[in-house]
Nucleic acid binder design. Structure first.
Length: 893
RNA sequence: GGGCGGUUAACUCAGCGGCUAGAGUGCCGGCCUUACAAGCCGGGAGCCGAAGGUUCGAAUCCUUCACCGCCCACCA
């Protein structure tokens, strides 16, 4: 029966995937309905930057989310995958500023209002490209609910939360030393600072004594900040320095600095004397607070020295450092210079060295929020998967510092704070005011915007409609699972937990699945500068989304790195093809069977009424189905993929389809139809099993099944038919596989010509096995290139020309050309016997061990007993053969 | 300085107290067998990083060490 002409030889993914996706979308299959029944299963997407395009990290993240979403949807859960994008303040603003620069203008020239118009316009025009790319991946998000962090609704949520936290004292404004990026011209939070090991110099600078006091030498890496010094600090117990108050003179300026004593100072480092610059160092700032020191800012927001730096004013901070060092040397005030390796903070975006700067910023008081978040993980309200991340999470939450949330940008949620020019009061308000509510004076709004992560911290409830009490919020919060890379645990996961617990009074999600980070094939981080970036869309173009998704899922275990290479994807594209062709084959037999049952899927008989191969595959399908479900429930995506892959390829294709062929091509019509129906049943379940990982090809194939009306994506996920469990059929198929493999192996070893038919015999240890072989011999003949397969008479000797394969249930004799070399055969058997003897010795020693018998679990001991019996059976067969062959070797030729 | 990973076949990894340690890719040999040559069949390949320890039993648990990688960090 030739396959149907419309059934192409390969899955034409380039044509099929967009078409199928459009069908799903048109049919509204992604939509969630809060009124619908079923347990809620909810995922909120980690919102990609609206300016971004799909990279490997997104591809992995969204593949896993889609697998879970599709699985739960098929299971009948009330499933919502909530999509959207992030305004990504600093990143987006930078992109638009670059565009402006190319036009020869700038943000300053445009002014705030026109600049923001430009960003919105840019967003409408080029933003959201990534949504289309997520669709190509197959993401089954409910696009009707797509949100953007700067939507009116979400902005309202941001404002509400800001006001509420302010009213509660959890948001405050103050003058502190914050991390300032002189290039981005904004403050950034602590976790946005990266630390880079750098080879630097430690300069020993002499501060001469004032008023007859002693001189001090301080050690610093940043001599250019000396004009901001307002003290020198030593350890209170440092005996190298005289007791009592004294002062030193700042080089060049002559300004007098008090010498203070504080245990913060490390006596062992440098000279044990520390220059204190409260305006440009966070530790010095704290020292200054403790000792009531003034702050002097000597470097401005652009990294340029200020008038406080006297002759160096107007110089860049690094230029100034060189010049100052040179000048100190010339004045004999540079005692020495040592090389020093230390970590320097740089901006996570532009890698510019951070300038700690005293400035007026808004902060979130994170202490109480963080301890609530940590508690929710400690008591299991939110689980981290893999659990090993908990320690890291606690580490951070327990040592968290206040979160600087103001950014000196224009693109973002402007801080809802107004300052009265008359009475000087600060007003944080939900509605824009006309005038000062207190005195009616003129108001000026705070120009700054909020950190992008402030709004993404609200994502799990703001997207569901909060602050309104929507049906979605009631039904879908807390969400079920959050899937993300571990790189944003602190940026995002922790913030959502803090905000969710504070605002909603409950955790934002029950489980956080932290997946690996995608690397290139050699484990390197992908980056444009390294040129090792693989574009996921190119991969989809070349291999299809299904192969790509499957490759990602197959590697999504508990490791930290996921090394992706095209070879791997190519490997799974062969799997897609394999599945396609297996289905093509199955369908060519299903079609006539369906014809016989009126175009409908033929009713498959119960497994127990079927021949052995069907009973076996259905038993295996049951096991694999249950294992796949267990794997998905525990987020073991790699295991799920592996199980499905091997079931399809090794069992379904390599054995079941081959064993079915003699029947399917046979003359017995009843048997043929039954086999086809059984095949259809197994195929349908297999497609459903694979659908979460490979949605396109499975949907396409499912549509070709006879009598198919609905979509596979909205069909039930297989639950497994418990009545199909059949360990005996698995054992018996195992014997038939042994026979087949033994003959194939003998043929290959002895170079039996491909066309030549052999007449193997099976010498079974018991009549039941002999009967089994005789019964199913017709199914095996073609698989092993045999003309006949017979059970040898009990006790019959192995023919001289036969290659023998020994099993615990008996032996397979495959006659090969001429006579088997007796000496070689003897050597082989002796080797085999030695191996068997080792196995037996091992098993026996275990069973003779009282500790083993007493402590090992019952089933393990039982297994060992069975194994020992099987070894002994094998040994007996091998010994018998050896006796025979020895006789031949000695007396024969 | 603190913490977390990794080290298993040529490569990339799975296995994480008990089957004779597995898979994919690659390699070797043979096949165009009417679902699939993007395929089929057969085959070789590993003192499970090192050393101790716990245990009846260790690739798997503990300790120490080595190398690789990541994260956090207020000795300038």
């Amino acid at each position: 029966m030739p396959p149907d002409d419309s059934f192409t030889r390969n899955f034409e993914f380039a044509e099929a995937e967009p078409r199928i996706y459009a069908d799903w979308e048109r049919e509204g299959l992604f939509r969630a309905d809060p009124e619908a029944p079923g347990d809620p299963f909810v995922i909120v997407i980690p919102p990609p930057n609206v300016t971004g395009s799909l990279h490997m990290g997104h591809a992995l993240d969204n593949t896993l989310q889609d697998i879970l979403t599709r699985y739960h949807r098929m299971k009948g859960d009330n499933t919502l995958w909530m999509p959207g994008t992030d305004h990504a303040g600093i990143a987006t603003q930078a992109v638009v500023e670059r565009a402006l620069a190319a036009e020869g203008t700038s943000r300053a020239e445009l002014g705030r209002e026109r600049f923001l118009e430009r960003v919105w316009k840019w967003k409408e025009e080029f933003g959201g490209k990534i949504i289309g790319q997520l669709k190509r991946l197959g993401s089954s998000c409910d696009w009707s609910r797509e949100r953007f962090t700067m939507d009116p609704g979400l902005s309202r949520a941001v404002r509400e939360v800001f006001c509420a936290l302010y009213e509660e004292g959890l948001i405050y404004r103050g003058d502190y030393v914050t991390n300032w990026c002189p290039r981005c011209l904004t403050a950034i939070s602590d976790i946005e600072v990266e630390h880079e090991e750098k080879d630097d110099s430690l300069y020993y600078v002499v501060y001469e004594g004032a008023g007859g006091g002693p001189s001090l030498t301080v050690a610093t890496t940043r001599p250019e900040t000396m004009f901001g010094d307002t003290a020198v600090a030593i350890h209170p117990d440092d005996g190298r320095y005289p007791p009592g108050d004294f002062k030193v003179r700042l080089p060049f300026s002559g300004r007098e600095l008090p010498v203070i004593r504080d245990p913060y100072v490390e006596r062992e480092f440098g000279t044990g004397a520390l220059k204190v610059t409260p305006a440009h160092d966070i530790n010095d700032f704290r020292l200054g607070e403790r000792h009531g020191l003034p702050s002097v800012t000597c470097i401005d927001r652009r990294g340029i020295l200020t008038d406080a730096a006297g002759p160096y004013s107007g110089m860049d901070r690094f230029e100034a450092r060189k010049k100052i060092v040179a000048d100190l040397g010339a004045s004999g005030l540079l005692a020495k210079v040592e090389p020093l390796k230390h970590a320097v903070g740089v901006c996570y975006r532009c890698k510019t060295v951070i300038e700690p700067l005293l400035s007026l910023q808004w902060f979130v008081k994170t202490g109480p929020l963080a301890s609530a978040a940590a508690r929710s993980v400690r008591d299991g309200r939110t689980k981290l998967v893999p659990q090993s991340w908990e320690r890291t999470f606690f580490e951070w939450m327990d040592n968290i510092r206040d979160w600087c949330v103001s950014r000196q940008l224009w693109w973002g949620h402007q801080i809802p704070a107004w300052y009265c020019s008359s009475c000087g009061k600060t007003h944080v308000l939900r509605e824009d005011p006309e005038a000062c509510p207190d005195c009616g004076g003129g108001l000026e709004r705070d120009p700054d915007v909020l950190d992008t992560w402030f709004s993404s911290g609200l994502w799990p409830f703001s997207t569901l409609g909060w602050p309104d009490r929507t049906p979605e919020l009631a039904r879908y919060y807390p969400t079920t699972v959050l899937v993300t890379g571990f790189d944003i645990i602190f940026f995002w996961v922790a913030r959502m937990m803090m905000m969710g617990l504070k605002v909603m009074g409950d955790v934002p999600f029950r489980t956080v699945v932290l997946h690996p980070l995608v690397r290139d094939a050699s484990g390197q981080k992908m980056s444009k500068s390294k040129g090792n970036v693989i574009d996921p869309l190119g991969v989809i173009d070349r291999y299809g989304a299904d192969a790509f998704r499957f490759a990602l899922a197959s590697q999504a275990g508990t490791a930290r790195d996921l090394k992706i290479s095209e070879d791997r994807v190519a490997g799974y594209s062969r799997f897609v093809n394999k599945l396609w062709n297996a289905a093509r084959f199955a369908m060519s037999h299903l079609a006539p069977a369906a014809g016989a049952s009126g175009g409908k899927m033929p009713q498959a008989p119960p497994a127990s009424a079927m021949p052995l191969p069907d009973r076996w595959i259905r038993s295996r399908l049951l096991t694999v189905t249950l294992e796949c479900r267990a794997a998905l429930e525990s987020f073991a995506f790699d295991r799920y993929a592996d199980l499905a892959y091997h079931f399809v390829w090794d069992e379904l294709c390599d054995w079941y389809l081959e064993l079915a062929k003699p029947v399917l091509y046979g003359d017995d019509e009843t048997a043929r139809l039954a086999a086809a129906a059984s095949l259809g049943l197994v195929l349908a379940d297999t497609l459903a099993l694979l659908h979460p990982a490979m949605p396109f090809v499975t949907e396409e194939l499912s549509a070709k099944l006879p009598g198919q009306s609905g979509r596979l994506m909205s069909s039930p996920f297989p639950a497994g038919r418990p009545e199909d469990r059949d360990p005996d059929s698995e054992r018996r198929i195992g014997i038939l596989m042994d026979v087949t493999r033994s003959v194939r192996s003998a043929r290959a070893d002895f170079r039996v010509p491909p066309g030549a038919k052999v007449k193997p015999q099976v010498s079974a240890n018991d009549p039941a096995t002999a009967a089994l072989v005789e019964e199913y011999a017709p199914l095996l003949l073609k698989l092993m290139g045999a003309e006949s397969l017979a059970a040898a008479a009990p006790g019959a000797p192995k023919p001289r020309d036969a290659c023998e394969a020994i099993h615990d249930w008996g032996a397979v004799w495959t006659p090969v050309a001429g006579e088997v070399d007796a000496a070689a055969e003897k050597a082989r058997l002796e080797k085999e016997l030695a191996a068997i003897a080792r196995d037996i010795a091992q098993a026996e020693s275990k069973l003779a061990n009282p500790g083993y018998l007493a402590k090992a679990p019952e089933d393990v001991v039982e297994e060992t007993r069975e194994r020992l019996a099987s070894f002994k059976a094998k040994r007996e067969g091998a010994e018998k053969s050896l006796r025979l062959i020895s006789g031949l070797a000695a007396g024969g030729n």
